[in-house]
Amino acid sequence: METITTQDRITLIHLKVADFASEETLCFTATVLFDGVAIADARNDGHGGSTCIRALDGQAAWLAEAEAFARSLPPDMLEGGISGEDDDPLVIDITLDYLVDHLAEAQHAERKLRTAYTRDIANKVLFIRDGKLLFLKGIKLKAIADRAGYFAALRARQETPIIILAELPPDEAFALWKQHVLGGESS
């Protein structure tokens, strides 16, 4: 799955997900980009069927090239096979609809994480102490007028050094929060 998420030739924009309609697969619509050019519309009704990809006007050749690129990616290996407990992994050849499904799922999961982070960082004083993500109960970050003074006082009360997420650049704070919330897993 690493190849799918690290390739950057095929991407999605305008992803709209209907969680309420997602049953066996993610119910979504999106625009597929190939090398930064919008080439197709993609949709999945969320009932377990494959994703329908339709070329935009005049983009059929680009869509064929994107399909060939997807097929050239190494196969996906699902450890544990179909049941999750099999000795042999399930090997799945990559197709464009398979790739688009995984990109949509990854983008949707990232959005959900960002939403949870945004809620946490706005409503809590989050900090790392002794390798653990902690927060001050009942204290809202947005209610603190003198953050620098408050953070200095918070540091002074700690026996060990702390990292306060609100003092970090947003992307760095999110990465640190995500690392602790997911327990070291990457999405």
Rank of each mutant, 00 (worst) to 15 (best):
L63G: 06
Q59N: 10
A55V: 03
G48F: 06
T95E: 09
A64W: 10
T29Q: 08
P74H: 00
T51E: 05
C27S: 14
D41I: 00
I10G: 01
D101M: 14
T51F: 06
L78Q: 12
R71K: 13
D93V: 00
D19N: 08
D93H: 15
V37C: 04
L103K: 15
I82R: 06
G36D: 09
A61W: 03
T95V: 04
D57M: 07
T95W: 04
I13L: 01
G36Q: 11
D86G: 00
G81T: 08
G80C: 05
G84I: 09
T31A: 03
D86H: 04
E65M: 10
C27T: 14
I92K: 00
V32G: 07
A55K: 07
E67W: 08
G49A: 12
L12T: 14
A68N: 10
H102R: 13
I82D: 00
F20N: 04
S22Y: 09
R9V: 10
I92T: 10
N44Y: 06
T31N: 03
G58V: 09
G84W: 02
G46R: 09
S83Y: 05
I39E: 09
T51W: 02
D35L: 09
G80R: 05
M77I: 13
T25R: 06
G81K: 07
G58W: 00
D45I: 08
A38N: 10
T95Q: 09
E67R: 15
S83H: 09
G46W: 05
S22M: 11
V91K: 03
A60I: 11
A38V: 08
A55P: 11
L96S: 07
P74V: 00
R54N: 10
V32N: 06
D35I: 04
L96C: 10
L103D: 07
R71V: 14
G46V: 08
F69K: 02
V100L: 01
G49V: 12
L63W: 02
D35S: 11
H14C: 10
I39A: 04
T95C: 05
A70Q: 11
I13G: 01
L15M: 08
F28Q: 06
E67S: 13
D101Y: 01
V17L: 03
D57K: 03
E85A: 04
G80D: 10
S50E: 13
K16N: 12
H47I: 12
